[in-house]
Amino acid sequence: MVDVRDKLKISYESLEREQKEIFLDIAFLFIGMDVRLVIPMWKDAKYSPEVGIEILQLKSLIKIGEDNTIWMHDQLRDLGRSTVEQEDKEPGWRSRLWHGEDAFNVLVQQQVWHFRSFPSLESLILESCGELVWVDPSIVLLKNLILLNLRGCRSLEKLPEQLGSMESLVELLIDDTWVKELPILRGMKKLEVLSADSCTNLHEIPASVGSLVNLRILSLSHSGLKELPNSIGQLTSLVELILTGTDIRRLPDFIGDLHDLEVFMIDDTYVSGLPGNLGNLKKLKVLDALGQQNTK
């Protein structure tokens, strides 16, 4: 008699190689994440994520919620993780590590504090690694790095300046860290997603943010942000701008230049008025200004 786990295994084995990779990425890393944040990474890896996601849904291996979050049943998640665990008994030789502490321990065991040993690395995920206090400047040597996830690294206060020269980086996720500054340079040509939610020590973003011509999502909700630079108007590819719960009081008129903007969240802020040219945003679908604060 075939049990549930065997049936799930059969469904997994029926997938093409690329679809298996997407399935494993989700099982390890992306459950509960907005699928729109993940798609750019898969595309840069030369996958066809829209097709893969559709097939995974048709086989009932994942679901995409109304809020675009990825859902996977616990049994499928465990199947994916056990599949990778069987690759090698040593975590350092597996294709994926799902817990930030495991990745940190691998680095410690190998006494690797620079990144020269990983020239082909495409994704570096150290999420919720509470002991991480710094990122070595040699990270700039990771010429193929697409995703850098430092979410929940609450001891991390500074990012290396060299990060701004990483031309291949597509997603930078630093939510819920103590980072105070963003090292944004013109070299970050491919960056599409920058997320710094709940970075309460982050009070401003540099004017150089305007050089991120391919940026599609800028999320700064509940950060310590107090103002936006005028150069924000140069982000002509921006689709989502999330400023929920920040200390911003005034919006630059250049917001009206963001012609591709579809989602604009300024709820629970201190903004007292909207730019007069907001009507230029012909693609805008969501404007949330609920719960405006009158005083600080």
Rank of each mutant, 00 (worst) to 15 (best):
residue 3 D to M: 10
residue 3 D to W: 02
residue 8 L to C: 09
residue 11 S to V: 08
residue 15 L to G: 03
residue 16 E to P: 00
residue 20 K to S: 03
residue 23 F to D: 10
residue 25 D to Y: 07
residue 27 A to T: 07
residue 29 L to T: 12
residue 30 F to I: 03
residue 31 I to R: 15
residue 31 I to V: 15
residue 38 V to Q: 13
residue 41 M to I: 15
residue 42 W to A: 10
residue 46 K to S: 13
residue 48 S to N: 15
residue 51 V to M: 14
residue 56 L to K: 03
residue 61 L to M: 15
residue 62 I to N: 01
residue 66 E to W: 05
residue 73 H to K: 14
residue 76 L to F: 06
residue 77 R to G: 05
residue 77 R to N: 00
residue 80 G to C: 02
residue 82 S to T: 11
residue 83 T to E: 07
residue 85 E to W: 11
residue 87 E to N: 04
residue 90 E to K: 14
residue 91 P to Q: 03
residue 91 P to V: 08
residue 95 S to R: 05
residue 95 S to H: 05
residue 95 S to Y: 06
residue 97 L to V: 11
residue 98 W to N: 06
residue 107 L to C: 06
residue 109 Q to H: 13
residue 112 V to K: 12
residue 112 V to N: 04
residue 115 F to V: 03
residue 116 R to E: 02
residue 119 P to Q: 10
residue 126 L to Q: 08
residue 127 E to D: 12
residue 132 L to Y: 06
residue 136 D to S: 12
residue 141 L to C: 08
residue 142 L to K: 03
residue 143 K to T: 02
residue 145 L to I: 08
residue 149 N to H: 12
residue 149 N to S: 15
residue 150 L to T: 09
residue 150 L to N: 01
residue 158 K to C: 03
residue 158 K to Q: 08
residue 159 L to D: 06
residue 163 L to Q: 08
residue 164 G to E: 08
residue 165 S to E: 04
residue 167 E to Q: 01
residue 167 E to G: 00
residue 168 S to K: 09
residue 170 V to K: 07
residue 177 T to Y: 07
residue 178 W to Q: 14
residue 185 L to W: 04
residue 186 R to Y: 06
residue 191 L to T: 10
residue 195 S to I: 12
residue 200 T to N: 01
residue 202 L to R: 07
residue 202 L to M: 08
residue 210 G to L: 04
residue 212 L to C: 04
residue 214 N to K: 14
residue 220 L to Q: 04
residue 223 S to G: 04
residue 224 G to Q: 02
residue 225 L to F: 00
residue 234 Q to F: 12
residue 234 Q to R: 13
residue 237 S to K: 10
residue 237 S to C: 14
residue 240 E to G: 05
residue 241 L to E: 08
residue 242 I to S: 13
residue 242 I to P: 08
residue 243 L to C: 06
residue 252 P to F: 07
residue 253 D to V: 08
residue 254 F to Y: 09
residue 261 L to I: 05
residue 263 V to E: 12
residue 264 F to L: 14
residue 264 F to N: 11
residue 264 F to G: 02
residue 264 F to D: 01
residue 265 M to Y: 15
residue 266 I to T: 05
residue 266 I to L: 13
residue 268 D to L: 11
residue 268 D to T: 11
residue 269 T to C: 00
residue 271 V to E: 12
residue 280 N to L: 06
residue 282 K to F: 05
residue 285 K to R: 15
residue 287 L to Y: 11
residue 289 A to S: 15
residue 290 L to V: 14
residue 291 G to M: 05
residue 292 Q to S: 14
residue 294 N to M: 13
residue 294 N to I: 11
residue 296 K to M: 09
